[in-house]
Computed example of a mutant assay.
Amino acid sequence: MKKLTINILFGSAFFCLLQAQVGIKTQVPSASLHIEPSSISSPTGMDGILIPRVKAFPAPQAKGHMVFLFQHATLPDGFYYWDGTAWVTFLSTFNRTFDDAIYVVTGTGYSASGNTENTVLFNTLKAFNPSGFSVSGNQVTVGKSGNYLISFNSALKKTVGTVNENRAIYTYRIKKNGATILTTSNSLTNEGTTATSVALSGIVALAQNDILQVTIQKTTETGSSVYTGYGTNCITMTYLND
């Protein structure tokens, strides 16, 4: 009888291994491995899965191999998985002070032409939560201190001038409280009618109530000094951290 019981148990175990799905505490598994708790509403300390806990990484077997590392000499405790190249920690927390971190300021045109330093025009601010931020007189008031990724784009064109005049260089300056913090240049060809665009970006530390503005200036003595804004001027300020 004992031999028969062992054979029956062995046969049952072998039959279970042949199944496509395995259920623990359930007769109808709905996944490759389906584990039901002792109680959904009142689980006990025996419910859940205990991932292997190790003090050093084992030899990885395949992508997705997972362990819980603890008491390691240099690495923090936590879950790690093998991505095929290295052991990667799970992201345990993600702190972001603001989700509404993007501020877009737009406008059209420049204040004037000529060789003087002219103002790039802005009049509209768009943000999920613009509290503290404003745009007035083509200047942007910063509403929150922190590090920002500032991106600027604009374009200019000339519609008059001789075909054979020299190439003209134009310099854009992003200023904080009147001091230049980012700058770039572009140029117009010597064609009679032509246009060009510019893009500029950088990471800048800003304080609440700082004032931002953008200027354009023709910085060569030859070439066209008669130009105008072409399309939309745009400053995008993305808050990174404080």
Rank of each mutant, 00 (worst) to 15 (best):
residue 149 L to P: 00
residue 137 G to Q: 07
residue 53 R to T: 15
residue 17 L to K: 08
residue 186 N to A: 06
residue 152 F to E: 00
residue 2 K to P: 00
residue 139 Q to I: 01
residue 80 Y to T: 14
residue 78 G to L: 08
residue 12 S to M: 05
residue 103 Y to S: 00
residue 190 N to L: 13
residue 126 K to E: 15
residue 187 S to W: 13
residue 47 D to F: 13
residue 41 S to I: 09
residue 128 F to N: 05
residue 180 T to K: 14
residue 29 P to A: 15
residue 44 T to Y: 00
residue 119 T to N: 07
residue 169 I to E: 11
residue 13 A to I: 12
residue 126 K to Q: 15
residue 192 G to Y: 06
residue 108 T to S: 10
residue 65 H to L: 01
residue 91 L to H: 02
residue 22 V to C: 11
residue 76 P to Q: 04
residue 234 C to Y: 07
residue 69 L to Y: 08
residue 67 V to A: 01
residue 54 V to L: 14
residue 48 G to A: 15
residue 124 T to E: 15
residue 25 K to G: 02
residue 154 S to Q: 13
residue 102 I to H: 10
residue 206 L to I: 02
residue 83 D to T: 05
residue 195 A to Q: 09
residue 165 E to P: 03
residue 12 S to I: 04
residue 115 N to R: 02
residue 128 F to G: 07
residue 168 A to M: 04
residue 39 S to V: 11
residue 164 N to T: 02
residue 94 F to D: 12
residue 201 S to H: 11
residue 103 Y to M: 04
residue 76 P to S: 05
residue 193 T to N: 15
residue 53 R to Q: 15
residue 231 G to T: 04
residue 237 M to H: 03
residue 219 T to D: 03
residue 127 A to D: 10
residue 25 K to E: 03
residue 23 G to E: 11
residue 133 F to E: 00
residue 77 D to M: 06
residue 102 I to Q: 04
residue 225 S to V: 06
residue 134 S to H: 13
residue 206 L to M: 10
residue 240 L to M: 09
residue 236 T to L: 10
residue 176 K to V: 07
residue 25 K to Q: 06
residue 34 H to I: 09
residue 90 F to T: 07
residue 216 I to T: 07
residue 128 F to R: 04
residue 102 I to Y: 05
residue 129 N to S: 13
residue 128 F to Y: 07
residue 183 T to D: 01
residue 241 N to L: 02
residue 23 G to C: 14
residue 40 I to T: 04
residue 9 L to M: 10
residue 66 M to L: 13
residue 105 V to C: 03
residue 110 Y to I: 12
residue 7 N to K: 11
residue 106 T to D: 12
residue 149 L to E: 09
residue 86 A to K: 12
residue 56 A to N: 03
residue 234 C to F: 10
residue 79 F to C: 05
residue 234 C to A: 14
residue 5 T to P: 00
residue 174 I to C: 02
residue 123 N to I: 02
residue 219 T to G: 10
residue 236 T to E: 13
residue 196 T to C: 10
